[in-house]
Structure formats: C-alpha cells, structure tokens
Amino acid sequence: MSHHKVILNNVCFTYPDGKNALNGINIEIHHGESVAIIGANGAGKSTLLLSLVGILFPQKGEIRIGEMPVTKKTLNIVRQKIGFTFQNSDEQLFNSTVYEDVAFGPRNYKLPEDEVKKRVEKALEIVGASHLKDRPPYKLSGGEKRSVSIASVLSMEPDILLLDEPSSSLDPKARRKLINLLNQFKHTKIITSHDLDMVLDVCERTIVIGNGQVVADGNTFEILNNGELLDKYGLEKPFVLQGCPICSNKN
C-alpha cells in the first residue's frame, strides 16, 4: 500500500532568527512502519514533526503525505490523516471535559453527533480511559492525560500517528502501558523520543538526526547498538543494551 507513504525530499528549514534547523532531509516512510526519530536536543526533531503537519513550512524541498504534498491548500486533508500528540499533554487538552476534548476533532470535521459519540467512545475504550469521560482534563494524572491526548487524535481515525516524546513525564507503569498500547496500533507511527528503551520496544526502524540532517537510518537494534554513532550525536545506548553493571565489574 503506497497511499500512506510519508516522503520528505530535501527538506530545509531556517527559523527567522537564522538558526538552520533542517538541512536537506530525505526520508521515506512506508505504510504501517513504526519509525523513531532520535537526536540530541536542538537536532531538529521537533521542527521536522511540525513541518510534517504544516505548522511550519520548509523553505526548500517537499513533503508528501500519501501522494499529497503538504501545502496550505491541502492542510485540511493532511491533518485529518495525521494524529499529532504534543510533548506536553496539557497543551492538547483544553476543553472542559475529557469527552469534549476527544470530540473536538470529529466535530470540527462536521461529523454527525451520533458518529462523533461512537468515535469518542471507541477511542476512549482503545486507550482504556472510558471511565474518565466526564472528568475535567486538568484533574487527571500524567498517565491519564497522555492516554486521553492519544484518544483525542484517535477519534479522528488518522492513518499516521506522530508522537512527540510520548513517554516523557510518565511513571514506569504508565510508560509500560503506553508502550503496550502503541504496539497494538496498526497505524504508521513516527515517534520522537529520548527514551531509547521505549524506542527499542516500539519501533523497528530508527532515524538519527544531527545538525538538521539524517545521519543514520536503519534497523533500530543495529543503530541503538552502535555506541560510537550514538555518542557522536549526543545519545547513549539504551539501558537494556548496556552491559549489566554488576556482572561486568566481576570480569
């Protein structure tokens, strides 16, 4: 299936203050793939995600989502295909109840109210948050907020999920739940994270970004096992791939 391909072709982006965030990025992501985008702080990960959904427009190059270029004209269609969750869930949840928040997207796409209701209930059920339906979002715990923010994009039935640091500020149990949840999804997933252990559990492919360029692209296990590469770009092997501190001291 090629219709949900994500293609970035020589994408360049410079911020108004002159900072070169992206310097010619070439990526092709296929339908159903689960891809991690990793890199040091300021490497350009967030800029990349923001340009995929047309919040930022690259000065050079082209982004295509499922055969459709991301331009001002196509934004509505593109954004319907992509579910984007923010690093800080608080910024995504602004309605007075969880239900309203999850219904926000479908209602904006003018779906009839009974369809909206169906979608909201389904999305909340998938993330296991049905019982939170009538709660105000700001009273939820971090993990619950994350689940609800994922439900709020699932209700739009996107083909592609973009998740910006999904495991940040979650406690270990909530993080594990999130990983299990993400593994159930059949969507194309693009995840940025510093949580490389999660990346190892969720994504089969990893792209390393450094100085606004793709510096490595390949199998997650191979890349995350390449200590030299990771070190050069401000990263570190995930804990599960580091030797056990107790055993290695004995040798």
């Binding site: 923001l50 919040i55 954004r79 923010f86 910024e91 926000f104 904006n108 739009m156």
Partner: peptide, 14 residues
Amino acid sequence: SAMKLRGYNTEFNN
C-alpha cells in the same frame, strides 16, 4: 496549533 491540527477553522463546533 493543537486546535488547528484537529481541524479547527475559526468555526466552533463544540
């Protein structure tokens, strides 16, 4: 941005 990404276009359908 979060609102726009979920199809918000100065129309409130809440």
